[in-house]
Amino acid sequence: LVGSPDACTPLEAPESLMLKISANSTRPARWYTKLGFFPDPRPFPLPLSSLFSDGGNVGCVDVIIQRAYPIQWMEKTSSGLYIFRNEREEEKEAAKYVEAQQKRLEALFTKIQEEFEEHEENTTKPYLPSRALTRQQVRALQDGAELYEAVKNAADPAYLEGYFSEEQLRALNNHRQMLNDKKQAQIQLEIRKAMESAEQKEQGLSRDVTTVWKLRIVSYSKKEKDSVILSIWRPSSDLYSLLTEGKRYRIYHLATSKSKSKSERANIQLAATKKTQYQQLPVSDEILFQIYQPREPLHFSKFLDPDFQPSCSEVDLIGFVVSVVKKTGLAPFVYLSDECYNLLAIKFWIDLNEDIIKPHMLIAASNLQWRPESKSGLLTLFAGDFSVFSASPKEGHFQETFNKMKNTVENIDILCNEAENKLMHILHANDPKWSTPTKDCTSGPYTAQIIPGTGNKLLMSSPNCEIYYQSPLSLCMAKRKSVSTPVSAQMTSKSCKGEKEIDDQKNCKKRR
Rank of each mutant, 00 (worst) to 15 (best):
L427P: 07
I187F: 13
D338G: 01
P306S: 08
V324F: 00
L108V: 12
S301G: 14
R135S: 13
A271P: 03
E190K: 13
E339K: 10
C312G: 15
P282S: 15
E91Q: 13
Q101R: 13
A194T: 09
G319R: 01
L423P: 04
S313P: 15
V324A: 06
R176T: 14
I356T: 15
Y148C: 08
S366G: 08
G246E: 04
R295L: 01
I350T: 15
R104I: 10
G80E: 05
D143V: 06
D208H: 15
Y292C: 07
R234H: 09
G396V: 14
F116C: 09
F303C: 15
T273I: 11
D156E: 14
S313F: 14
A272V: 14
E90D: 07
D156V: 06
L344P: 00
K302E: 11
L317P: 02
T256I: 15
E224K: 13
K193N: 15
F308V: 11
G329A: 13
R295W: 00
R85L: 05
Y278C: 10
P332L: 03
S366R: 12
R139C: 15
S241Y: 14
K258E: 09
N367H: 10
G319V: 03
A154V: 14
A155T: 11
C312R: 07
D355N: 15
Q277H: 15
N367I: 01
D316Y: 01
S259A: 12
V212M: 06
V315E: 00
E99A: 10
V209A: 05
R216C: 06
G144D: 11
A331V: 15
E245G: 00
Q369R: 15
Q293L: 12
A94V: 14
Q269E: 06
V334I: 13
L254P: 06
Q369P: 15
Y249D: 02
S263C: 09
L344R: 03
W434C: 08
P297S: 14
V322I: 14
D338E: 00
E121K: 13
V151G: 05
R216H: 06
K422E: 12
T276I: 05
N430K: 12
S231G: 10
Y148H: 09
D355G: 12
L368H: 00
A365E: 02
D316G: 02
Q101K: 14
I112N: 05
A154E: 12
D355Y: 06
Y341H: 15
Y278S: 06
R371Q: 13
S165R: 10
K92E: 12
L141S: 06
I426V: 13
L172W: 09
N367K: 02
A185D: 11
E314D: 11
V321F: 01
E395K: 14
C312F: 14
R131C: 12
R234C: 11
P282L: 10
S165G: 09
L368R: 00
L105Q: 08
F389S: 02
D156G: 06
A365P: 02
L423R: 05
Y335C: 08
L215W: 05
D156H: 05
E245K: 02
G144V: 11
G319E: 01
I287V: 07
L368F: 02
D413G: 13
